[in-house]
Write a protein that binds this DNA or RNA. Structure first.
Lengths: 335, 335
DNA sequence: TGCATTTATGTTATCGTTAACAAATCTTGT
DNA sequence: ACAAGATTTGTTAACGATAACATAAATGCA
């Protein structure tokens, strides 16, 4: 197989200098209209494909934006990435996507790997990282954006919300319905830092209402959320049979719990009101529909992309974006 | 902000040549143990980060493997990508992931964009592409692997299965239960080529059993599967009230349909037996559990990665991998 | 010890593109 | 028609690494 053609080949064939070919491939450059046309045609004829790697090396711009998320298979992270990718690729950037599988060491390894490609910005999910990862990020000389959480000690910029504060919305709602024996399911897995933050928010909100918050059941790692939700519901009913409301760390756990109620003939919301988190599709389809919190994943992605673009124009720009999640009431809390 | 250090800086600081530094960063190269140690230490001290772009340009190897999938937020595609990424990154490759949103023009644009980075292999989902995309792929001089479908006219290599053939499994099962008025939901969206293939398979299987296959209802684009499944169930019940079995293009559509049955008090499986496709988590959690087909997404990813690695060693290697999906029986068909 | 062999390090040119500067060509107004 | 400015094209060197080849240092063995 023969070597693929370079600008040099195109230049020779078209009878111009290499530099003119280079310019012809940039939209804004000054090249005569008929010269450009000839070059385009010659390039097509030769099957020339522009080599971004060489361009990057010379111009010292990688066009990469590195992005890490905990899991690919999550409607919310996916929505954020879709929004982010759309906006960034429209602006000519290439997203380098990595998933950590909720493992902070994996995240560190990914960051290390991505930095070797000289990304122009790094967008990470969450504010919890290994010490080494924090160091890598802050010393990278590249804009860093933490999304989804509003960490107490940000590395660079933040586009997120307070997971803890969202629990106020849910607890207030359940309390306003007269529920008092409110349980929380999930938030026990070390790896799911957002879940832990939500549980902490639940505890704080309950304390604010002077309600006992001892009804806590684990649901394990987020990867098995639905199954674990069903299992955990069994535990909850045995341990705290007088529970009259349940907040789940996610809609997926919530759906597992809901289906277990269905199996056992427990009436939701009459006996137990139930709320999830994440506004997953399933919350609007399951029976009963699940009250949930919409964390605005697309808005997070769009804002993060906007911030990246702004920072690439002006690295000194300040800009943290706070997102305001909304409570979506549905049948599972009797609305 | 000062320029980040290069090998030259490390070499000067460590009192060796640039080439020695370069070798010290490759594991297998011959460098004295104490020299290597000194270089490592100097590099760390300077905060040196290896520049993969430059290395790629010189060595004419990108370490990239381009991968396109229809949607990020899909448990099956995600599982394939996870398996693929894990295996390839262990071997030192970087996956460039792009999602097409089930749009073939978007896929073409992605491929065009990826080729400019000189990937060492390209893995695409499905066997349906624009003509231009097919041309790009086949002329790229890079190994091409089509996954998830077994296309009639492959571009290069294939790791997949016959969507149509999987429907034989499901139809045979339902017929063996004595069901005759079998409906199919989905497969109507142009963009969902796999769904279309499944519907075609359904029609073929019904013909083989000499059964009428006019009970077809659309469920629209896969992005809204759950909602559309619920809506479509309404249509089905109105149009074909004597339906005694339903095959859905995916478990997500199936769950939508199932929840609509629950709302209307229709007994599944007594009145209507129901089967989905994809072995999504939800199929094992919903009530009743959903009979489904497991398309072995992880196996697809692993096999595709294995094939990529093999092809990179020996580009002339032949190798198509056929995956055999399995039927998973559950309560929704009365098992 | 001395010479062949292995191991460790150095030198030079280059991957394919673009920044920076230089030169040539084309406009335009008088 | 011609100077002055605007537009288009060309030349040279460089981005940061490595392949290929050359040489120096270390080792083995008679």
């Amino acid at each position: 197989m023969k070597r693929s053609p370079t600008m040099k080949d195109v230049a020779r064939e078209a009878g111009v200098s290499v530099m003119t070919v280079s310019r012809a491939f940039k939209d804004d450059a000054s090249v005569g209209e008929k010269t450009r046309e000839k070059i385009r045609k010659t390039a097509d004829g030769l099957g020339y494909v522009f080599d971004v790697t060489a361009a990057n090396l010379r111009s010292q711009r990688s066009d990469f934006v590195a992005v890490t998320i905990p899991s690919l298979n999550n409607a919310n992270f996916a929505a954020t990435v879709v929004a982010l990718t759309t906006k960034l690729s429209d602006a000519g950037y290439q997203v380098l996507l990595g998933h950590t599988n909720y493992d902070m060491d994996k995240e560190e390894a990914l960051i290390r790997q991505f930095l070797r490609r000289r990304p122009e910005a790094i967008v990470v999910t969450g504010g919890h990282h290994t010490d080494a990862a924090r160091k890598l990020l802050s010393e990278s000389g590249v804009p860093v954006i933490e999304t989804w959480d509003a960490p107490p000690d940000p590395i660079g910029h933040v586009v997120g919300f307070s997971n803890a504060a969202t629990m106020d919305l849910v607890v207030d709602h359940l309390v306003s319905l007269g529920r008092k024996n409110i349980a929380f399911m999930g938030g026990d897995a070390d790896s799911d830092t957002r879940g832990r933050d939500r549980r902490a928010g639940f505890l704080a909100a309950m304390a604010r209402h002077r309600l006992q918050a001892r009804r806590l059941v684990g649901s394990g790692a987020p990867q098995k959320a639905m199954h674990e939700g069903a299992r955990a519901m069994g535990h909850l009913l045995e341990a705290y049979p007088d529970t009259d409301a349940l907040i789940c760390v996610s809609d997926l756990v919530g759906f597992g719990a809901l289906s277990e109620c269905q199996r056992r003939g427990i009436d939701v919301p009459a006996q137990i009101a139930m709320a999830g988190f994440g506004a997953y599709d399933i919350s609007e389809v399951c029976v009963p529909n699940l009250t949930t919190v919409d964390p605005m994943p697309t808005k997070i992605g769009e804002s993060a992309a906007g911030l990246v673009l702004q920072l690439l124009k002006d690295p000194t720009a300040k800009g943290n974006v706070m997102i305001t999640p909304t409570l979506r009431l549905a049948q599972s809390t009797g609305v």
